[in-house]
C-alpha cells in the first residue's frame, strides 16, 4: 500500500540571478512499512526532499499524496495537523528545547496537540522505559550525552505514534558506537511497522536499509527498488 506518492516534484530556490533546482522531476513511491535510505553528495537535494515529505516545505510543481490524500493543497494549519499526528522528525542536531527536561521534551508533541496531562504522563513513562531513559527523565538536554539526546528526540518523534518517521542524518553528530545504537532504535521502530526514511552520508548505514535512493543535482539517480526489479 502506497504511503507516499510523489510525481513531477519541482523545488527551485532563487539565489540572486541564478535558480537552483533543488528538486527536479522527482517521482517516488514509498509503501507503508518501508525502510528507505536517501544518499547522495552534499547539495543534491536530500534535505529538501525530506522537508517536502514532512510538509515543512511546498513544491513549486508536482503532486504529493500522503496516505492517498493530496497534501500539497492543504492549508498551513491542516498541514500542521498532519505533521502532528502522521509524521515524526529526527534531526541531526537533535533540536531539543534546552529549558525543558527530557520528559517534557518527549511530551512536547502531545502538549502541543492538547492531550490531557494524565495521558501524557502515562505515555512518556512508557517511552522513557523503552528508550532506556528512566533515570534521565528530569535531566535537561545539556545534562545528557549526544546519544541520550538523540534517544530523547526519537522518543519524541514516536510519542504520537505516527506511521512515518523522517530522519535527516540522525547519526551525523554522534560517534560510531552511539550512532549504531540510534540506528538500531530506528530499525526496531521500522520492525514494528513504522515507515522509515533516513538521509545519511554513511555508506554502512545506507547498506542496512532495505531500499536505497541516491540523489544527484535534485534528481533521483538510483533507486535500489528499480535496480532489483
Amino acid at each position: 500500500m502506497a504511503l507516499i506518492e510523489l510525481s513531477g516534484i519541482e523545488r527551485r530556490f532563487q539565489l540572486g540571478d541564478t535558480t537552483v533546482n533543488a528538486l527536479a522531476g522527482v517521482n517516488l513511491r514509498i509503501d507503508s512499512g518501508e525502510y528507505v535510505a536517501v544518499m547522495g553528495p552534499s547539495g543534491s537535494g536530500k534535505s529538501t526532499l525530506l522537508n517536502l515529505l514532512g510538509l515543512l516545505d511546498r513544491p513549486d510543481a508536482g503532486s504529493y499524496r500522503l496516505e492517498n490524500r493530496d497534501v500539497t493543497t492543504l492549508t498551513a494549519d491542516e498541514q500542521a495537523r498532519v505533521r502532528s499526528t502522521r509524521i515524526g522528525f529526527v534531526f541531526q542536531s537533535f533540536h531539543l528545547v534546552p529549558r525543558l527536561t527530557a520528559a517534557e521534551n518527549i511530551a512536547l508533541p502531545m502538549t502541543l496537540a492538547g492531550i490531557a496531562p494524565a495521558e501524557r504522563e502515562r505515555r512518556v513513562a512508557l517511552a522513557l522505559q523503552s528508550f532506556g531513559l528512566e533515570h534521565r527523565a528530569d535531566h535537561k538536554p545539556d545534562q545528557l550525552s549526544g546519544g541520550q539526546r538523540q534517544r530523547v528526540a526519537i522518543a519524541r518523534a514516536t510519542i504520537m505514534q505516527p506511521p512515518l518517521i523522517l530522519a535527516d542524518e540522525p547519526t551525523g553528530n554522534l560517534d560510531r558506537h552511539t550512532g549504531e545504537e540510534v540506528v538500531n532504535l530506528l530499525e526496531a521502530l521500522n520492525a514494528q511497522g513504522v515507515t522509515l526514511v533516513v538521509v545519511t552520508h554513511d555508506p554502512g548505514m545506507g547498506e542496512r536499509a532495505r531500499r536505497r535512493l541516491v540523489m544527484e543535482d535534485g534528481r533521483l539517480k538510483f533507486d535500489s527498488a528499480n535496480a532489483a526489479g
Binding site: D77, A80, R83, F89, L108
Partner: peptide
C-alpha cells in the same frame, strides 16, 4: 528561531 521551527515541525499551528 530554532525552537519555533521545531514547534512547527511537531505540528503546532500558527495560532499556538
Amino acid at each position: 528561531t530554532g525552537e519555533i521551527g521545531l514547534l512547527k515541525a511537531l505540528g503546532a499551528p500558527a495560532r499556538t
